[in-house]
Design a protein around this nucleic acid. Structure first.
Lengths: 210, 210, 210, 210
DNA sequence: GATGAATGAGGCTTCATTCAT
DNA sequence: AATGAATGAAGCCTCATTCAT
């Protein structure tokens, strides 16, 4: 087992196998994916997989870890590059939707099989992923708005993350009934709802918050 | 599991087995769950499972179907009973969070293993579930607001559904770092963000960067 | 278990089941035939089969026993009714071929699955059947020819029984390449070969027997 | 089992398994033989059997195919090496009886479980086997006798094949009541009956054929 | 007596893992 | 290091048998 914990320190061959694992997982899911499928997809022998990973569980956990890191990095960078809260959120929303288009297998593993349990470790990785993302979003909110933000940044971050995941999932599920537009349109309209909210009920005053 | 009513003509014994399947799936996930586990949980023999279901895949697909219907009904009823849009959304948000508390296994199967691929049929069921929920929420928006609603109801419905799922998932994942409050507090605060939105940047016309 | 050893003393319902068993065995063979198939074919419940037979092995052994007895009786009567050796042999040959036409399932079980081992008892029944038939044919030879018969009657009986079984099997296998004629033609021509033999080699004297 | 030559490109390991399968089938029959029995007999792991054969049905069908080919080749060579019709038939008869002694398991599978239905393919193989043998015998008759042969060669071939199979079966069933002599005696006496036939009835003229 | 729902032992088959090459 | 043939534990599923109705 040469594979270190650091993604960046993963040997090229191990990375080839991990990428193959992600692609196969995206198509067949955790339950149906066999080590041999991954080996074939990676163009190596079955035994070679075991040179780089301890077990099926290890391989799949690291594959999810890889997918998680790729996705998390993209979102984090988008959030950090924003010139305003709205800009940051729009960038990350757009980045996620584009990621679903360009790296569909990776996105599919993350959104489609969230805690599909190829062993408990996968669950832990995804809990960490959520926590990290919520933290990053809340930090972005505080950075741009600070005390001016009227709501609990954590709650707001969760609302945004939910909307982002849901929009991405809709894209992945490729449902032709919904979201027929471009990713840019989808990001813009979704963001508009998030920024403005649903608004107070115009007829009666009952939609006022207390 | 409160639900014991006839579901689409499923026999009582079959329902017992399905409920057991949901409970076991919630704990062990699709991959690790064995037919024998389900049989033991249901208090029947292994062979009996095969009297009512064609295969492991059939059983698990129907278990997800059952969980989906239970959850969808609860959300639909909450949306329909609302006296205003805010009330409807708050009711459904609260209902979902409470459902996660009282029927944690069912919720876990739905949120934790979304499209975990116990066969392709599970994926279809969950796509249907999303579409149905988005439709119900959009209908609720149109019913209470009609033309007054400034945004695309479908987009807004997706934002809300994402926030609802994410809040429920956070609850399920039982992450002690986030959301420490009661379900009522969580529902109220989450709803406040959704209704008001993040708001415009207070200082200048747009958000200021740091 | 009401079923006595004597076929003639078998209760009507047991006989119905046995006949059904023979029909199903003929189609699916020993390995693939399930008790439920037999019950359905007999038009009774699965449990009823166990009212009349101890086990699957018991049922199948008795079914083969029934088939054997039906076939053996027909051959024995044909042999006994012959007015000469040739007549007796022709009658039995014809009877066997006709039996294959009219009672194909029974013949199929006997010829197609001879010692197919639905338990060791089936093997014993078929050994007994062969012994009985060889004995009956040898007795017929002695009765009509006595000391005039130049060969060992047992050997001759075996040759005849082999030819008879082979002709019947060819009929059962329904091979369109061979034996295209009627059963009467087949019986007549087969018998002619048996009575006359292949004859001495005309060229040299080497086909003379010593 | 003497035969170890390549059969249709079967790998040596596959042949080892096939030979083991034949031996186990001979003892336990189709119904009672388990894959694990074959694996143990072959000295390999259970999984190894599945490296070389698709299923139990595939394995058993090929085992019967192997047995059929071994037996058919022996008979065909005996027929071809004969210097006269009588010699050819005697050689094949003797070869068959000796085969039953030296390769009892193979013979047992062929004679004892003829069309025992380990799947429909077995039936096809045995139909082919019979057709091939009848053809070879008929060809031998024509070769040595040509137009001098008074009877239909196909019919005669069937009579001979039946006698040969029956004699071999008697040997296999190991019935101590019959055929106590050596295989040479049995072959000689059986052949004498076949060559000379039963003869005309001496007393009256009724045994004359029309 | 007749039934068929329920059962679980046991078989076929898969596939993660090993290891000799 | 790389391989893939070999393995056997483990799981899905079948079906002979039972037994309450």
């Amino acid at each position: 087992m040469k594979c270190s914990m650091e993604i960046d320190g993963v040997s090229p061959k191990a990375l080839t196998i991990l990428e193959a694992a992600v692609r196969v997982l995206a198509v067949h899911g955790f339950e149906a994916t066999k080590i041999e499928d991954v080996a074939r997809e990676a163009g190596v022998g079955k035994g070679t997989v075991y040179e780089y990973f301890d077990s099926k569980e290890d391989l799949f956990a690291r594959a999810v870890q890889l997918a998680t890191r790729m996705y998390a990095r993209i979102l984090r960078e988008a959030l950090e590059n924003g010139t305003s809260l709205r800009d940051a959120l729009e960038r990350s929303l757009l980045a996620s939707l584009q990621f679903c288009e360009t790296s569909r297998p990776v996105a599919q593993v993350l959104l489609d099989n969230p805690v599909g349990r190829a062993g408990a470790s996968v669950r832990e990785w995804l809990i960490d992923f959520r926590r990290e993302m919520v933290g990053a979003i809340a930090r972005t909110i505080r950075h741009h708005r600070g005390a001016d933000f009227a709501r609990d940044p954590e709650i707001a971050a969760n609302v945004f993350l939910g909307a982002l995941n849901n929009a991405s999932l809709a894209r992945i599920l490729d449902d032709p009934e919904e979201y027929k537009g471009t990713v840019e349109e989808m990001a813009r309209e979704t963001l508009a709802v998030i920024m403005d909210g649903f608004g107070p009920d115009p007829a009666r005053g009952e939609d006022r918050r207390g």
